[in-house]
Structures are given as C-alpha cells and as structure tokens.
C-alpha cells in the first residue's frame, strides 16, 4: 500500500464525560477508499469533525501529507485539500444547484472584495470557467437539468449527488463522505457508488462512513470498524466482516 496521505494519531475527545474518541489512530492511504463502520455513537462523525476542524480534539494529532494540521480552522483545512459531505446534507437550499457547486470551488478571485470592484474581469473569467466545469460535473452526476433549480427542490437522492458534486468541484485530494447512500433508492445508490469509485480512480483518497454494509463491502478497499471511539478492527472488507470482535459488536 502506498504512503499515508491523512494520518490521525492518538485522537481523544469527550462530550460531557462521554468518550467520543479515545486514543484513536488511523491512516488513509493515497488513492484508496477507506470504509468507516461501527454502531451509532461510535465516534465516526466526530472523527470527521475533528479532521475537518469543526471540533478541536483534546489530545492527539492530525496530519495531512506529513504536515501537522491539528486544530486549524475549517476553512483553512478545506483550502488545503480536504472536502467533506454532511450526514444531514448541508446545502444552501435557497440557492440553485449550480450556485451550490460554484460556491465549492476553492479559488475564485471574485470572492475577494477588492476584485469585485478593481479586477472584475478576472473574477468573471474565472466564474465562466468554473461554470463550465460545474455544469460538466452536474451532467456527469445526471442532475444537469436541475442546475437552475433551488437545491431544496431536488429529490433527496439528487441532493446527495449534488453534495458529491460539491466535493468534486473542490478538487480536494481527500474526500470525507458521511453516509452518502443512506436512505437512497437502489439505482441512485449505484450511481453514487460509481462516482465514489471514479474519485479513487482519479487519484483521490476517500473515507466513507456508511451503515449500508453491502455498499461498504463492494466499494471499499479497506475497512476500519470503530466502537466507543476506538478502533476495534481493521483490514480488507472480508477480514473485518469475519472478525469475531466485529460480529460480536453487531450482535450486541
């Protein structure tokens, strides 16, 4: 396996005495899809929140490409190449699907105030390129005909697709997906899983939180099973599936 692009070591975090993460260490290798599974409250989403800077850990370290990024602000981490989706589908519901995608591009000079007035041409030129790219991404996701509709008018599955499009627009190297196929119709699910595999095939590294074990088994290269904030088992999907500790946890 190639070198780790994202590495967490000894992460701890508790909420009101409940340990959400307890001395968790884990690596994400370049160009792999890592599945993160475990019961509710195992600390999977907390791990995402720590890695993306929304929650500060009490102990431990997060590093991206061997640079320490622990405790950086969310927008800085986003600009360093980490993109994420949210379990509760955060999109700007009043804005069009296209605008949501456009917001996700990281390098729009028109978003700087000075350029609004003094170098508007540069912003417009960039906007035109981003727009083309965004429309291409929406086409690939099969929701181009909804580009001008407010995001809230998209179906649940289409919104999940849109949040994935936003991650693609970010051109991030590391993509963290929180339950991308939960509650989705089967054909839409195949579409989304296909897009996730494409991400990997384009050299991105993906972490996938998912309760749908079939989806995890058929998509992930490696799986980590978490329980009570700690790593219980790690390996190929098959190995983790057959690990007695995992079986036990699921039977509980």
């Amino acid at each position: 396996m190639s070198e780790a692009i994202l590495k967490v070591t000894g992460l701890s975090k508790s909420f009101d005495g409940v340990r959400a993460l307890s001395d968790l260490s884990c690596d994400l290798c370049r160009g792999e899809i890592l599945g993160l599974i475990g019961p509710n409250g195992a600390g999977k989403t907390t791990l995402f929140n720590v890695v993306t800077g929304f929650i500060a850990p009490e102990g431990g370290k997060v590093s991206l490409k061997s640079t320490d990024i622990t405790g950086l602000a969310p927008h800085r981490l986003a600009n360093r190449g980490i993109a994420r989706t949210f379990q509760d589908l955060r999109l700007i519901r009043q804005l069009s699907a296209l605008d949501n995608a456009l917001l996700s591009f990281r390098d729009q000079p028109g978003e700087r105030l000075g350029n609004v007035f003094f170098r508007a041409r540069r912003g417009r030129e960039h906007e035109r390129q981003n727009r083309q790219e965004a429309i291409r991404l929406l086409e690939d996701a099969g929701i181009a005909e909804k580009a001008d509709d407010p995001a809230e008018d998209l179906s649940y599955g289409q919104q999940k697709l849109l949040s994935l499009v936003c991650c693609l627009a970010a051109r991030a190297e590391v993509v963290l997906l929180d339950e991308p196929v939960a509650g989705i119709a089967p054909e839409m699910k195949e579409k989304i899983l296909g897009m996730i595999r494409d991400l990997r095939d384009n050299g991105k590294s993906v972490v996938l939180i998912e309760h749908d074990l079939d989806a995890v088994m058929q998509t992930c290269d490696r799986v980590v099973f978490m329980d009570a904030g700690a790593k219980v088992s790690e390996g190929t999907p098959q190995e983790v599936r057959n690990d007695p500790k995992v079986i036990e946890a699921y039977i509980d």
Binding site: T52, A73, R84, R90, I92, C166
Partner: peptide
Amino acid sequence: VFAQAAGKN
C-alpha cells in the same frame, strides 16, 4: 457550516 466546509473564511 457549509460555507466553512467550502473553504470560506
């Protein structure tokens, strides 16, 4: 939260 996750300060 969306804005932050999209890299906006």
